[in-house]
Amino acid sequence: MEYVSPEGLRLDGRRPMEMRQIRAEIGAVSKADGSAVFEMGNTKVIAAVYGPREVQNRSQQLSDQALVRCEYSMANFSTGDRMRKPKGDRRSIEISLVIRQTMEECILTHLMPRSQIDIYVQVLQADGGTRSACINAATLALADAGIPMRDLVTSCSAGYLNSTPLLDLNYVEDSAGGPDITVGILPKLDKVTLLQMDSKLPIDILENVMQLATEGCKAIANYIREILLENTKELEYRRGS
Protein backbone atom coordinates (compact mmCIF):
# COMPACT_ATOMS: atom_id res chain seq x y z
CA MET A 1 0.00 0.00 0.00
CA GLU A 2 1.05 3.56 -0.66
CA TYR A 3 1.45 5.50 2.58
CA VAL A 4 3.30 8.41 1.06
CA SER A 5 2.21 9.61 -2.36
CA PRO A 6 4.81 10.61 -4.94
CA GLU A 7 3.69 14.17 -4.25
CA GLY A 8 5.03 13.68 -0.73
CA LEU A 9 1.73 13.67 1.12
CA ARG A 10 0.62 11.11 3.64
CA LEU A 11 -2.83 9.58 3.75
CA ASP A 12 -4.13 12.31 6.03
CA GLY A 13 -2.51 15.15 4.10
CA ARG A 14 0.55 15.62 6.29
CA ARG A 15 4.07 15.63 4.95
CA PRO A 16 6.48 12.97 6.28
CA MET A 17 8.16 15.26 8.82
CA GLU A 18 4.99 16.80 10.17
CA MET A 19 3.36 16.04 13.46
CA ARG A 20 -0.35 15.97 14.03
CA GLN A 21 -1.98 18.90 15.73
CA ILE A 22 -1.26 18.82 19.47
CA ARG A 23 -3.30 20.34 22.23
CA ALA A 24 -2.91 20.18 25.99
CA GLU A 25 -4.98 21.29 28.93
CA ILE A 26 -4.04 21.33 32.57
CA GLY A 27 -6.39 20.62 35.43
CA ALA A 28 -8.99 18.39 33.91
CA VAL A 29 -9.63 16.41 37.09
CA SER A 30 -10.11 18.78 40.01
CA LYS A 31 -10.04 16.08 42.68
CA ALA A 32 -6.57 14.93 41.70
CA ASP A 33 -3.39 16.63 42.84
CA GLY A 34 -2.42 17.18 39.26
CA SER A 35 -4.07 16.35 35.97
CA ALA A 36 -3.94 17.02 32.27
CA VAL A 37 -5.50 16.17 28.96
CA PHE A 38 -3.18 15.70 26.00
CA GLU A 39 -4.25 15.37 22.38
CA MET A 40 -2.24 14.38 19.33
CA GLY A 41 -4.64 14.59 16.44
CA ASN A 42 -7.44 12.20 17.23
CA THR A 43 -5.58 10.53 20.05
CA LYS A 44 -6.84 11.93 23.34
CA VAL A 45 -5.48 10.95 26.74
CA ILE A 46 -6.29 12.06 30.26
CA ALA A 47 -3.82 11.74 33.14
CA ALA A 48 -4.36 12.24 36.87
CA VAL A 49 -1.67 12.24 39.54
CA TYR A 50 -2.17 11.63 43.25
CA GLY A 51 0.63 12.17 45.71
CA PRO A 52 3.08 12.26 47.12
CA ARG A 53 0.99 10.58 49.80
CA GLU A 54 1.27 7.87 52.38
CA VAL A 55 2.03 4.43 51.04
CA GLN A 56 -1.19 2.42 51.01
CA ASN A 57 0.38 -1.00 51.23
CA ARG A 58 2.99 -0.81 53.94
CA SER A 59 4.95 -3.75 52.66
CA GLN A 60 5.73 -1.87 49.46
CA GLN A 61 7.10 1.16 51.26
CA LEU A 62 10.62 2.15 50.32
CA SER A 63 12.73 3.79 52.97
CA ASP A 64 14.97 5.77 50.67
CA GLN A 65 12.71 6.87 47.87
CA ALA A 66 9.15 7.38 46.77
CA LEU A 67 7.11 4.56 45.31
CA VAL A 68 5.82 5.41 41.83
CA ARG A 69 2.83 3.52 40.57
CA CYS A 70 1.15 3.80 37.23
CA GLU A 71 -2.07 2.50 35.81
CA TYR A 72 -2.85 2.67 32.13
CA SER A 73 -6.24 1.87 30.72
CA MET A 74 -8.25 2.43 27.62
CA ALA A 75 -11.80 3.69 27.82
CA ASN A 76 -14.35 1.29 26.38
CA PHE A 77 -15.37 3.93 23.90
CA SER A 78 -11.83 4.83 22.86
CA THR A 79 -11.80 2.78 19.68
CA GLY A 80 -14.43 2.46 17.00
CA ASP A 81 -16.06 -0.63 18.41
CA ARG A 82 -17.33 -0.14 21.89
CA MET A 83 -16.41 -3.18 23.86
CA ARG A 84 -15.53 -4.04 27.39
CA LYS A 85 -11.83 -4.34 27.76
CA PRO A 86 -10.51 -6.54 30.53
CA LYS A 87 -8.34 -4.67 32.94
CA GLY A 88 -4.78 -5.80 33.23
CA ASP A 89 -4.36 -7.38 29.88
CA ARG A 90 -0.86 -7.92 28.62
CA ARG A 91 -0.74 -4.76 26.56
CA SER A 92 -1.89 -2.40 29.33
CA ILE A 93 0.46 -3.99 31.84
CA GLU A 94 3.31 -3.44 29.46
CA ILE A 95 2.40 0.16 28.76
CA SER A 96 1.85 0.84 32.49
CA LEU A 97 5.32 -0.46 33.11
CA VAL A 98 6.83 1.60 30.32
CA ILE A 99 5.20 4.79 31.57
CA ARG A 100 6.17 4.06 35.19
CA GLN A 101 9.80 3.46 34.33
CA THR A 102 9.99 6.54 32.16
CA MET A 103 8.43 8.80 34.79
CA GLU A 104 10.44 7.27 37.66
CA GLU A 105 13.53 8.28 35.79
CA CYS A 106 12.71 11.96 35.93
CA ILE A 107 10.93 12.28 39.26
CA LEU A 108 13.34 13.14 42.09
CA THR A 109 12.13 10.17 44.12
CA HIS A 110 14.90 10.40 46.71
CA LEU A 111 13.38 13.66 47.97
CA MET A 112 10.20 11.89 49.02
CA PRO A 113 11.08 8.67 50.89
CA ARG A 114 8.31 6.51 52.35
CA SER A 115 5.69 8.08 50.12
CA GLN A 116 3.73 7.06 47.08
CA ILE A 117 2.91 8.74 43.79
CA ASP A 118 0.06 7.37 41.68
CA ILE A 119 -0.24 8.14 37.98
CA TYR A 120 -3.47 7.19 36.27
CA VAL A 121 -3.65 7.54 32.53
CA GLN A 122 -6.66 6.71 30.46
CA VAL A 123 -7.02 6.77 26.68
CA LEU A 124 -10.24 8.53 25.76
CA GLN A 125 -9.77 8.25 22.04
CA ALA A 126 -7.19 6.11 20.32
CA ASP A 127 -5.71 6.88 16.89
CA GLY A 128 -2.15 5.64 17.10
CA GLY A 129 0.67 6.90 19.28
CA THR A 130 -1.19 6.36 22.57
CA ARG A 131 2.02 5.46 24.36
CA SER A 132 3.61 8.79 23.53
CA ALA A 133 0.47 10.74 24.30
CA CYS A 134 0.23 9.03 27.73
CA ILE A 135 3.79 9.96 28.63
CA ASN A 136 3.24 13.56 27.58
CA ALA A 137 0.01 13.76 29.55
CA ALA A 138 1.67 12.22 32.61
CA THR A 139 4.50 14.80 32.46
CA LEU A 140 2.00 17.62 32.42
CA ALA A 141 0.00 16.09 35.26
CA LEU A 142 3.12 15.55 37.38
CA ALA A 143 4.16 19.13 36.76
CA ASP A 144 0.68 20.28 37.68
CA ALA A 145 0.87 18.28 40.91
CA GLY A 146 4.10 20.06 41.70
CA ILE A 147 6.16 16.94 42.02
CA PRO A 148 9.89 17.70 41.78
CA MET A 149 11.34 16.49 38.48
CA ARG A 150 14.75 16.54 36.86
CA ASP A 151 13.29 17.66 33.57
CA LEU A 152 10.15 17.24 31.54
CA VAL A 153 9.84 13.89 29.77
CA THR A 154 8.33 14.05 26.32
CA SER A 155 7.74 11.31 23.86
CA CYS A 156 6.96 10.94 20.19
CA SER A 157 6.86 8.08 17.73
CA ALA A 158 8.22 7.72 14.24
CA GLY A 159 8.05 5.00 11.65
CA TYR A 160 9.49 3.95 8.34
CA LEU A 161 7.10 3.19 5.51
CA ASN A 162 7.58 3.28 1.71
CA SER A 163 11.28 3.88 2.39
CA THR A 164 10.43 7.20 4.06
CA PRO A 165 10.83 8.09 7.71
CA LEU A 166 7.46 9.30 9.01
CA LEU A 167 6.90 11.33 12.17
CA ASP A 168 4.03 10.63 14.55
CA LEU A 169 2.22 7.67 13.01
CA ASN A 170 -1.54 7.60 13.15
CA TYR A 171 -3.58 4.43 13.52
CA VAL A 172 -3.63 3.56 9.82
CA GLU A 173 0.11 3.99 9.47
CA ASP A 174 0.69 2.21 12.77
CA SER A 175 -1.22 -0.86 11.64
CA ALA A 176 0.80 -1.08 8.42
CA GLY A 177 3.11 -3.39 10.33
CA GLY A 178 6.26 -1.49 9.50
CA PRO A 179 8.94 -0.46 11.94
CA ASP A 180 7.63 1.85 14.65
CA ILE A 181 9.90 3.61 17.12
CA THR A 182 8.76 5.34 20.29
CA VAL A 183 11.34 7.67 21.81
CA GLY A 184 11.14 9.44 25.15
CA ILE A 185 13.69 12.14 26.00
CA LEU A 186 14.63 14.58 28.72
CA PRO A 187 14.86 17.61 26.42
CA LYS A 188 17.00 19.89 28.57
CA LEU A 189 19.43 17.19 29.63
CA ASP A 190 19.33 15.78 26.11
CA LYS A 191 19.02 12.23 27.35
CA VAL A 192 16.97 9.35 26.10
CA THR A 193 14.79 7.65 28.70
CA LEU A 194 12.68 5.47 26.46
CA LEU A 195 13.38 3.71 23.20
CA GLN A 196 11.13 1.00 21.88
CA MET A 197 10.78 -0.47 18.46
CA ASP A 198 8.47 -2.95 16.77
CA SER A 199 9.70 -4.90 13.77
CA LYS A 200 13.25 -4.43 12.52
CA LEU A 201 15.21 -1.76 10.75
CA PRO A 202 18.75 -1.49 9.38
CA ILE A 203 20.97 0.36 11.81
CA ASP A 204 21.72 3.41 9.66
CA ILE A 205 18.05 3.99 8.92
CA LEU A 206 17.25 3.47 12.58
CA GLU A 207 19.46 6.43 13.38
CA ASN A 208 17.60 8.65 10.94
CA VAL A 209 14.19 7.61 12.17
CA MET A 210 15.23 7.99 15.78
CA GLN A 211 16.62 11.43 15.04
CA LEU A 212 13.28 12.38 13.55
CA ALA A 213 11.39 11.11 16.60
CA THR A 214 13.76 13.07 18.87
CA GLU A 215 13.03 16.23 16.91
CA GLY A 216 9.36 15.51 17.46
CA CYS A 217 9.94 15.11 21.19
CA LYS A 218 11.69 18.47 21.32
CA ALA A 219 8.82 20.17 19.53
CA ILE A 220 6.40 18.66 22.03
CA ALA A 221 8.62 19.77 24.90
CA ASN A 222 8.49 23.36 23.68
CA TYR A 223 4.76 23.22 23.45
CA ILE A 224 4.41 21.69 26.94
CA ARG A 225 6.67 24.31 28.40
CA GLU A 226 4.50 27.01 26.86
CA ILE A 227 1.35 25.46 28.32
CA LEU A 228 2.94 25.19 31.76
CA LEU A 229 4.10 28.79 31.61
CA GLU A 230 0.67 29.95 30.63
CA ASN A 231 -0.86 27.92 33.42
CA THR A 232 1.52 29.34 35.96
CA LYS A 233 0.78 32.85 34.80
CA GLU A 234 -2.89 32.20 35.22
CA LEU A 235 -2.37 30.82 38.73
CA GLU A 236 -0.34 33.85 39.53
CA TYR A 237 -3.06 36.11 38.23
CA ARG A 238 -5.73 34.27 40.26
CA ARG A 239 -3.73 34.65 43.44
CA GLY A 240 -3.84 38.28 42.65
CA SER A 241 -0.23 38.95 43.41
Binding site: D12, G13, G41, N42, D127
Partner: peptide, 27 residues
Protein backbone atom coordinates in the same frame (compact mmCIF):
# COMPACT_ATOMS: atom_id res chain seq x y z
CA UNK B 1 -6.50 23.61 8.87
CA UNK B 2 -7.79 20.46 10.44
CA UNK B 3 -10.78 18.62 9.33
CA UNK B 4 -12.18 15.27 10.35
CA UNK B 5 -13.53 12.83 7.82
CA UNK B 6 -15.93 10.33 9.14
CA UNK B 7 -17.46 7.43 7.32
CA UNK B 8 -18.87 4.04 8.03
CA UNK B 9 -17.20 0.89 6.95
CA UNK B 10 -18.06 -2.76 7.05
CA UNK B 11 -15.42 -4.90 8.69
CA UNK B 12 -14.39 -8.36 7.60
CA UNK B 13 -16.56 -9.88 10.28
CA UNK B 14 -19.57 -8.11 8.83
CA UNK B 15 -19.88 -5.48 11.54
CA UNK B 16 -20.58 -1.92 10.51
CA UNK B 17 -18.25 0.53 12.17
CA UNK B 18 -17.83 4.23 12.13
CA UNK B 19 -14.37 5.34 11.16
CA UNK B 20 -12.98 8.77 11.83
CA UNK B 21 -9.88 9.94 10.05
CA UNK B 22 -8.04 13.18 10.28
CA UNK B 23 -7.72 15.11 7.08
CA UNK B 24 -5.34 18.03 7.00
CA UNK B 25 -5.98 20.79 4.50
CA UNK B 26 -2.92 22.71 3.44
CA UNK B 27 -1.98 26.00 1.90
Amino acid sequence: MLHNKSFVKKTKGGKVMKQVREHYLRD
